[in-house]
Amino acid sequence: MSIAAAIGDTIEDEPKPPPPSTNKGRKFTAYLLMLPGMLWLAIFFVIPLVALFMTSLQTPVPGGEVGQFQQTFSFSNYAETLTDDTYYIPLIRSFIYSGIATILALLIGYPLAYAIAFKGGKYRNLLLVMVIAPFFVSFILRTIAWRQILADEGPVVAVLRVIGVVGETGGIYPSAFAVIMGLTYNFLPFMTLPIYASLERVDPKLIEASGDLYAKPMTGFFKVTFPLSLPGVVAGTLLTFIPAAGDYVNAALLGRPSNTMIGNRIEYTFLSVNDYPTAAVLSFILMATILIMVLIYIRRVGTEDLV
C-alpha cells in the first residue's frame, strides 16, 4: 500500500545513501531537478512563515480602518496575547483534546493495525483500503455525519438512554466528548497506517524465536513486536497529534462555544475580526509549542529505542 508506505516513511526511514556521483555534471543535475519544487516551497512555505512572524509584530495604524496595520516590531503582542484568557485557555484546551484523541486513536489503531498485519491473511490489502476509505468522503461531511449519529434523535443517545448512562433529556452532542470523538475519528487512519507499515516489516521468525525461548505470547509481544513497531507508533502519534492540535472543524461542528480550540480562535481572529497581528501571534505560538513538544517526544522515545 503506497500511502501506508509513504506515511510510514516520512519519519522512520532515511533513503539508502545514493551511489557516489561520478562527475560534477551529475551534481549539477541534482540541483536542477530540485530547483523548481524547492523554490516553490521557499516562496510559499518559508517566506510566508517570515511574513507571519512580521505580521505578529505589527500594531494598528493610529486612526486607521479595521485591518490596517503597520510594522512596529511590537514584541509586547506576545505577552498581551498569552496573558489573555480568551486565548490561552483555548490553547491549553487544544493540547488536552488532541492529547486525549491521540491516546484513543493509538488504543484503537494499534490493535486494528495488528489484526490486519497478522490476522488479515489474503484480505490484508482489502482491509487497508477499508482503513483509508473514509478519506474518500469529504472530511466535513463525515464530521457532519457524526453530528447526526450523536444527535439527541440518533442511535447512540437512544442506546445510552436505555442503559441509563444518559438521562431522559440528556445528550452527548454538542460537547467536549463529541469533539474529542470527532478528532479521534478523523485522524485514526493516520495512526493506523504507519503502525501497520512497521508491523508488516516485523519478521514473524523473531516472534516465533521468542516463543521457542519460552516467552509467553504477552511477553513476546512487549519484548519483540511492540519495540519493533515503535517507529510506526511515533509516526502515527505525530501524524495524529499535530493536525488534531491545529484542527478547528471538529470543535466548530461538534462542540459548544465553551469547547473552542486554538484553531477556532485563529480562524475567527484572522477572518472575522481581521485582527491579523493577534491571529499571527496565536499561529506562531501554536507552531512553536508543537515543535517543542515534538522534539522532546522524539528525543524521549527516540534515543533509547529508535536509534
Binding site: L41, A42, L52, P243, Y276
Partner: peptide, 24 residues
C-alpha cells in the same frame, strides 16, 4: 527538512501564514 516541515505544520499555521504573505 524542508520537505518534512510542511507535513509537520498544522494546517491553520500553513493557511494563516500564506494569508499573511498575500495580505502583505
Amino acid at each position: 527538512l524542508l520537505i518534512f516541515l510542511p507535513m509537520a505544520t498544522p494546517e491553520v499555521v500553513l493557511g494563516s501564514s500564506l494569508l499573511a504573505l498575500f495580505l502583505n
